[in-house]
Design a protein around this nucleic acid. Structure first.
Length: 376
RNA sequence: GGGGAGAUACCAGAGUGGCCAAAUGGGACUGACUGUAACUCAGUUGUCUUUCGACUUCGGAGGUUCGAAUCCUCCUCUCCCCA
């Protein structure tokens, strides 16, 4: 794995680069569609490749471990072969599920004891076995096992969670060094900065994470209930510490505006369920603003979905037709919405990249941010 | 012609003296969704009012009662069964 920084913006911290993996080169900044269980919900890989132009997708350790299980993925020859996606893949560690499924788990020094949301069976994740599982899944980039505390955590709890994450990180790295890729291509390990909404904790965490000298670094525990301003402040604090010559991954973020603001603060990689989940639920992001396709106002609007849209669905289908599909609860609605939103997200980061390379990012960003939040 | 059942909000459908502006579904409208237990969830759906609350409603008209969607009388309409 190699990261090449091509250009840094003069007026901001935005960067454009290239991240090389054995499954392909990823231009940065990049948005990574989320494919939790080995499927970007509702979207064929053909569309992901050709229309959306996704360069890398996510999988999730927790979900894939529970179903289909690592044995089946191993038998298939790894996740790429199992799902039929030959581009890069990143797997999240399951740390986020420790947060989002908090009613079903118990944290110990050793790891996280949890119950399967599928059948209630008991399991344990430890830093070691999470690395092992991700070796078996075979993603190009694998993540540290962390604790993601809620956005409104107090300082004491955030400190405790950050310190636990750091101790787990040492064990993850030890396990990573002591094991090898199973399928003949390289895997890169990313540690995760925590620290909730506290500058001191974020700085300490970023320093610790940077000292581990991994291939790339991630920032977690943001967009989990805290105000956007706090999130931006934390990104800024962290990015002052994280090395410039390594990719920075902001986990789970976010809205189109969030992404542009974070790019300006020096973030290179993003993932978020928002384009697919909100797409399924009728919310479309466009370069002119946000549309709720279930709204009555689109009932007789027979114009194309998005005349500026990057995807074929934007020109193939009308607003009135898509509204009809959502209102009728047709699965095609969710598919069109997901394809549109993902194509838009990839278009957005590509545009950002082009403007960074052209030295015109900040001006473009300021204009875009105003338009992106408009309610159409 | 004979016998029976019924009419409740946009639709279906509970409620059969006060806790009823009226359950529950559906539909409609609006909102939420950020490392996916999510094609999910929440709110609104008689009028006025920011709230408290006020007012008008349960086929129509009249009556009983302190009080009626609920009881009585008549009218209108619908459906079912037998001829």
């Amino acid at each position: 794995m190699n990261f090449q920084l091509l250009k840094t913006d003069i007026a901001s911290s935005a960067r454009a680069g290239l991240l090389e993996t054995d499954h392909g080169v990823i231009p940065t900044p990049i948005f990574m569609p989320v494919g939790t269980v080995g499927s970007v919900k509702g979207v064929h890989f053909k569309d992901l490749h050709e229309d959306i132009k996704a360069k890398i997708i996510l999988g999730n350790t927790y979900h894939l471990y529970l179903r289909p299980g690592t044995d089946i993925i191993s038998q298939a020859g790894g996740l790429h072969k199992f799902i039929g996606w030959d581009g890069p893949i990143l797997t999240d560690s399951g740390g986020y599920q420790v947060f989002s499924l908090s009613d079903n788990r118990k944290l110990t020094e050793e790891g996280a004891l949890f119950r399967s949301h599928i059948d209630g069976s008991k399991h344990q994740f430890t830093p070691e076995n999470v690395v092992d599982i991700q070796r078996k899944i075979g993603a190009d980039i694998i993540m540290a096992f962390d604790e993601c505390p809620p956005g409104d955590s107090d300082h004491a709890y955030a400190k405790k969670a950050t310190e636990l994450t750091h101790r787990w990180l040492s064990r993850c790295i030890e396990q990573f060094k002591n094991t090898n890729p199973l399928y003949g291509y390289e895997q890169a390990f990313f540690p995760i900065v925590q620290g909730a909404g506290f500058r001191d904790l974020r700085t300490q965490s970023a320093e610790y994470i940077a000292s581990m000298n991994c291939y790339g670094n991630a920032v977690g525990g943001l967009a989990v209930g805290e105000p956007a301003e706090v999130m931006y402040e934390m990104i800024e604090v962290v990015n002052q510490v994280l090395p410039k010559d390594k990719p920075r991954y902001l986990m789970g973020v976010g809205t189109p505006v969030n992404i542009l603001e974070a790019i300006a603060l020096g973030v290179d990689m993003f993932d978020c369920v928002m384009p697919t989940r909100n797409g399924r639920n009728g919310m479309l992001f466009t370069s002119e603003g946000i549309m709720n396709m279930r709204n009555e106002k689109w009932k007789t609007d027979f114009s194309p979905l998005d005349i500026n849209g990057a995807s074929y669905v934007d020109h193939q289908y009308s607003k009135a037709y898509l509204r009809h599909l959502y209102v009728s609860n047709e699965m095609l609605a969710a598919q069109i919405g997901s394809i549109h939103n993902l194509a838009f997200y990839l278009w957005l980061v590509t545009e950002a990249r082009n403007h960074i390379l052209a030295g015109a990012f900040t001006e473009w960003k300021s204009k875009m941010v105003l338009k992106l939040a408009v309610r159409l």
